[in-house]
Write a protein that binds this DNA or RNA. Structure first.
Lengths: 238, 238
DNA sequence: CGTGCCAGGTGCCCT
DNA sequence: AGGGCACTTGGCACG
């Protein structure tokens, strides 16, 4: 009979390795708390000197190394990586290898404070609202938030230089390219819009308007918009 | 005397709350494994139905909720958030509040499989090489990787529309704007370069060259470069 | 697969 | 605090 939870304080290295191997084989989520060094080599390269960290190995092949601060793991490997755990000179070693691109994490634990193995049952997936797609939906449902007479035609319309959030026509029949941002727009938002407008202009001689839609816009982005005769439409959602 | 590690399997809700409160007060890192629902409200909004997850509360105020898959937490709050743990109708509740922007996480645990509290000592910070800054360093040290006669002058040079990675002059004394990417360059990389070149051109009548430096470049990015008479220089580092 | 792009992006640095 | 941007960005959707 397989227990759903295994949790052990200050295990011997041998016992820790045993638990972790079973955990990996059994598609369980493993948690290690201990003192370790971490080496990474792949797209970049890193070294992390000795300190206490939380290490999580997920059954999908993700590996996380967390320090006591920050939202981000200090080291990691994404889903699909292969984990190996073994003993070397009396120390627990956790290795993670990702292929394409090849990336390796090497963790050497000088001390293991805790090791746990958990069978996590989770069929639910998160429901999010307030995303950019929701804003686009609003505009398609109520085009007047852009301006009177605006007709949205396509969403995610592909051009030579990227995909247009919303393509439509205004009251006077002019082409309108809309780039939507769910947060404050910045220089790169304007660059995007500019790329799409340029792309559409390459394929027509008719006038093409470009409108950046966002709850706010940085000062320099506004300047950049103006210098290219692009427009900004403030749209507060939520 | 305060123990550095507290780990408890299947604690009663009362005991779990007690341990977690002490953990938060004592600037320790807390780990909860249990069955829960998660509600989030802030920049966006989300709901996550009942399932088994790993919850981490860090002493800097970060909160992470991890599912059994993916590198990313399904819900979180960044450093600086305030955590509260209490009992409600016999269930353990974990709440996290961030101000500016106001964001709240509400976790209701129907079952706690494990709770742990750890004093993590960690003075080390990660050393990373192979970053963009390293590539810029290489170019300053060996400007000939760009081309014979190139002279880099400034890095991170501010313009109206953003900061130029490297500004310099070529053999013939023409201004050169360089945008560096440590990985394959895409449309947005070209847009950036274009913005900077445009910005420099606004302040001079002399010719201004723009060079995108990267290990590779997407096909459409290449087209976009060409259409604006910008150049691509392949630079493999590492 | 590569390409493009959003993300509750996060984190860093500078003004 | 706001701006600009890199990140081992991650993750997804689409051709």
């Amino acid at each position: 009979m397989s227990r759903h939870t295994i949790a052990l304080e200050s295990p011997t290295p041998e016992r820790a390795v045993e638990i972790l191997r079973k955990s990996i084989l059994g598609s369980r989520t493993s948690i290690i708390v201990g003192r370790c060094i971490v080496k990474y080599r792949g797209r970049a390269e890193s070294f992390l000197g000795e300190g206490d960290r939380v290490i999580i190995l997920k059954p999908d092949g993700s590996l996380l190394v967390h320090k006591a601060s920050k939202r981000e793991p200090v080291n990691w490997n994404p889903p699909g990586s292969i984990h190996r755990v073994y003993l070397k000179e009396g120390k627990v070693i956790v290795e993670s290898i990702r292929r394409r691109p090849r990336e390796t994490i090497f963790i050497e634990l000088s001390e293991v404070y805790f090791v746990g193995s958990f069978k996590l049952i989770d069929e639910e997936c998160i429901m999010i609202t307030g995303t950019e797609k929701d804003v686009v939906d609003i505009i398609f449902r109520s085009p007047e938030v852009i301006e009177k007479g605006f007709k949205p035609l396509y969403r995610e319309m592909s051009t030579k230089y990227g995909k247009i959030d919303i393509f439509g026509v205004d009251e006077k029949g002019r082409a309108v390219v809309i780039e939507v941002k769910r947060r404050k727009a910045d220089l790169s938002s304007v660059s995007q819009l500019l790329r799409y407008v340029e792309s559409v202009r390459e394929s027509t001689n008719s006038p093409v308007r470009g409108i950046l839609v966002a709850p706010d816009c940085s000062a320099s982005a506004r300047l950049f918009l103006k210098s290219h005769n692009l427009e900004f439409r403030k749209v507060m959602f939520k």
